[in-house]
Amino acid sequence: MNDAPTQQCTVCATGLYDTEQQTCRPCTERVAANLLALAGPEGLYARLSDSLHPGSGSGGPAVSGSRTAPLPVRLEVLNAMTERGPVLGPLEGWVRDWEQHGRATVDETGTLQQRLDHAVGTLRFNLNWAAANHPAFADFADELWVIVRRCRTAAGEEKPPVKVPVACHCGQILRVSLDMDHVDCRRCQTRHGHAEMLRLTPTRRAAA
């Protein structure tokens, strides 16, 4: 058997061994760990509720120095907890995608936590198949990483990602970070998706 890498992993571009298909074992294991981190009563999704109120989770102040009363909840956390928010929405979207391949079953019954646990469970169950065969597995791995990072940031476990200035094709300077789903250019009205915005050219200031 030839143990030398032959092809590249679609996720990290490292060489694959002949026992690996499309995705290397470390990347598959990282995806499995990210899925596992989201689900269950102690998972990242459940812990979002602990960060819902100002001053909780992220370590932000409960009361600001302004005369305006603070919002009773943190809207970005509340949005992340909703049915169509940036956590459950994308996960169930991937379940629907895998269902078309005969590898998952959508279940939109029960509480939001139960739906998330089901989505994570069916994605984990079919993970080895997807890592070896799904044509968009790299996109799935990338989006899942963004979801986990967003949850950890909301829970105060990570600092918010640094925003880097990049140049739109029209010349407008945009500020992007790895956890953003997209960025809109005000000048030319172009919406750059996550993968596209990461390919935009950093400005001289960012390079410095």
Rank of each mutant, 00 (worst) to 15 (best):
M1F: 04
N2D: 14
D3C: 02
C12K: 02
A13S: 15
A13H: 11
G15M: 04
Y17V: 01
C24W: 00
C27R: 02
T28L: 13
T28I: 06
V31I: 15
P41D: 11
E42S: 13
A46C: 06
R47D: 12
D50A: 13
L52F: 06
S56L: 10
S66R: 14
A69I: 11
A69V: 14
L71P: 02
E76Y: 10
N79P: 01
A80N: 10
T82W: 04
P90D: 02
H101T: 07
A104F: 03
E108G: 13
T109K: 09
G110L: 10
G110T: 07
Q113D: 14
H118D: 01
G121L: 12
T122K: 00
L123C: 01
F125L: 04
F125N: 04
L127S: 09
A131R: 10
A132M: 13
H134C: 04
A136L: 08
F137V: 10
E143L: 09
E143R: 10
I147Q: 04
V148C: 01
C151D: 02
R152G: 04
A154D: 05
A155F: 00
P161V: 11
V164E: 05
C168S: 07
R175V: 00
R175I: 02
C188Y: 06
Q189H: 06
E196N: 07
E196L: 13
R199E: 15
R199F: 11
A206H: 09
